[in-house]
Computed example of a mutant assay.
Amino acid sequence: MIFFRFPFSETIYTTGDTSASDAVSFLSFDQSEKLDFKRNINAISISEFLNHEVFNDELKMELLEFKEETSEEYQKKLLNVMDFIKDNQLSKLVISRRKLVEFNGSKLSLSQTFLNLCEAYKNAFVYFFIKDGKCWLGAFSELLGKFDKRTSEFETISLAGTIPVDEKWTDKEIEEQKPVTDFISNTLKNYASEVHKSDTYDHISGNIKHLRTDFKAKITEEDLEKIIAELHPTPAVCGIPKEMCRNAIENFEPHPRNFYAGYIKVETEENVQYFVNLRCAEFFKNAALIYVGGGITAESSPEKEWRETELKSEAILKNLSFK
């Protein structure tokens, strides 16, 4: 079962009963896991969606013996991360954590939570799925790639740096976004003779904002999956250089990222779109785990980075619908 909504759309989609080439796929961060929904994509009304409202007590899996990382533990780890960044002269390394939400016997409507996310994040790709015992919801607006099958135009964005909407950008965020932009620009130049890049501007996402730069280029359809393979994981969810940062993430993070910071592929007759899977949570019968992270640099403040992850967790927290 899957439901999703495209950015700036009011339409909810699900997959139908007949097999077709149209498909939705979820790939984990390390690409070791893939969930496919290979059926026709159909639009449904909100009333149809709510006809089969889903609650947490219908889920099969329970979360057992989970110990949440404290603020002190996370900040202590970030000091070690910053030493690693300085020793290896890295521009940034992305580190994540999981925030625990215990239901304590309360009944959570997963369906209404999905609708709340749709309302709160108009510019996001919003999804809700249950498959193979797994249940995830998410809403995020970073486009890993979009390919128009008719025009062969490929679009992507550089999105990095995070502060509350009412604050002003500092050198830390500007320096954090620059290598993401350079990485994408250099990747696309290997596949297109001309790459169009926008000015950098503010991208508002609820209570926080990011720095954003847009890219467009003409490519061949045969190169599409190659480009996605090179772009993922972007510096915004991993770091630069990619392989060193991937290994460092394995060493510093005590948990698997699973589908967090992976990507979602949605293919229709007209286009293929790839969305980065951030601002997401994994749901169980008795609790939820919200996955959050941030780009750490040599100038980072561990205390500020903790607050940033707390702010990011509110994307899910503020939209949970308990009955």
Rank of each mutant, 00 (worst) to 15 (best):
Glu269Leu: 09
His255Thr: 14
Glu167Gln: 14
Ser106Met: 07
Asn123Tyr: 01
Ile290Gln: 01
Ser158Pro: 09
Ser106Gly: 13
Met82Cys: 08
Met1Tyr: 03
Tyr260Ile: 05
Asn80Glu: 11
Thr187Asp: 10
Gly133Ser: 06
Lys134Val: 08
Pro164His: 00
Gly294Thr: 03
Phe66Ser: 10
Arg307Gln: 13
Asp57Gln: 15
Lys226Ile: 04
Lys312Ala: 04
Glu58Asp: 12
Tyr74Cys: 08
Leu224Trp: 01
Phe128Arg: 04
Cys118Phe: 02
His255Cys: 12
Asp148Phe: 00
Glu175Met: 08
Ala236Tyr: 02
Gly138Ala: 03
Met61Asp: 12
Ala281Phe: 02
Leu59Phe: 05
Tyr127Thr: 08
Pro302Val: 00
His196Gln: 14
Gly239Asn: 07
Asp17His: 09
Asn56Thr: 11
Asn42Arg: 11
Tyr13Cys: 14
Leu110Phe: 01
Val94Asn: 07
Ser111Asn: 07
Glu53Met: 06
Asn51Ala: 12
Glu142Val: 06
Asn277Phe: 00
Asp36Arg: 11
Lys38Met: 10
Phe215Asp: 02
Lys60Phe: 02
Phe252Val: 10
Ile208Tyr: 00
Lys77Met: 14
Ser19Gln: 14
Lys34Glu: 12
Gly239Trp: 01
Glu282Met: 01
Thr11Leu: 11
Glu314Thr: 15
Ile174Ser: 12
Asp87Asn: 15
Glu253Phe: 04
Gln273Ala: 13
Glu167Asn: 13
Ser32Arg: 14
Phe4Pro: 08
Ser106Phe: 00
Asp83Asn: 14
Asn80Tyr: 04
Leu79Ala: 12
Glu270Phe: 07
Ala281Pro: 12
Leu79Gln: 15
Tyr201Asn: 11
Arg39Asp: 08
Phe26Gly: 11
Ser96Thr: 04
Trp306Lys: 06
Phe283Thr: 09
Glu310Asp: 11
Val81Arg: 03
Thr187Trp: 05
Ile95Phe: 02
Phe3Asn: 11
Glu270Ala: 15
Leu115Pro: 08
Ile219Asp: 01
Leu211Asp: 03
Arg307Phe: 00
Leu100Trp: 00
Glu48Phe: 05
Phe29Ser: 08
Glu33Met: 15
Ser47Arg: 11
Tyr74Gly: 09
Ile12Asn: 04
Lys178Phe: 05
Asn207Thr: 15
Leu79Pro: 13
Lys107Trp: 00
Ile240Val: 14
Asp199Glu: 12
Glu10Phe: 09
Glu282Phe: 00
Tyr13Ile: 07
Gly295Ala: 07
Ser21Gly: 09
Thr187His: 10
Pro233Ala: 11
Phe125His: 12
Leu35Gly: 02
Asn51Asp: 12
Leu35Thr: 09
Asn88Asp: 09
Thr156Ile: 09
His52Leu: 13
Phe49Gln: 05
Val292Ala: 07
Cys118Met: 10
Ala287Lys: 05
Phe275Cys: 04
Arg307Asp: 12
Lys304Ala: 13
Lys189Asn: 10
Arg212Asp: 03
Leu27Met: 11
Glu270Leu: 13
Val272Thr: 14
Lys92Arg: 06
Asn251Lys: 15
Tyr201Gln: 13
Gly138Asn: 02
Gly133Pro: 05
Leu188Cys: 07
Lys209Val: 01
Glu10Gly: 14
Arg150Met: 11
Leu63Arg: 06
Thr113Ile: 07
Ile296Lys: 06
Lys60Met: 11
Arg212Leu: 09
Pro233His: 09
Ala192Glu: 03
Tyr263Ala: 02
Leu110Met: 09
Glu153Cys: 14
Ile44Cys: 03
Val266Trp: 04
Ala192Ser: 15
Glu53Trp: 02
Leu278Glu: 04
Gly16Thr: 04
Tyr291Arg: 08
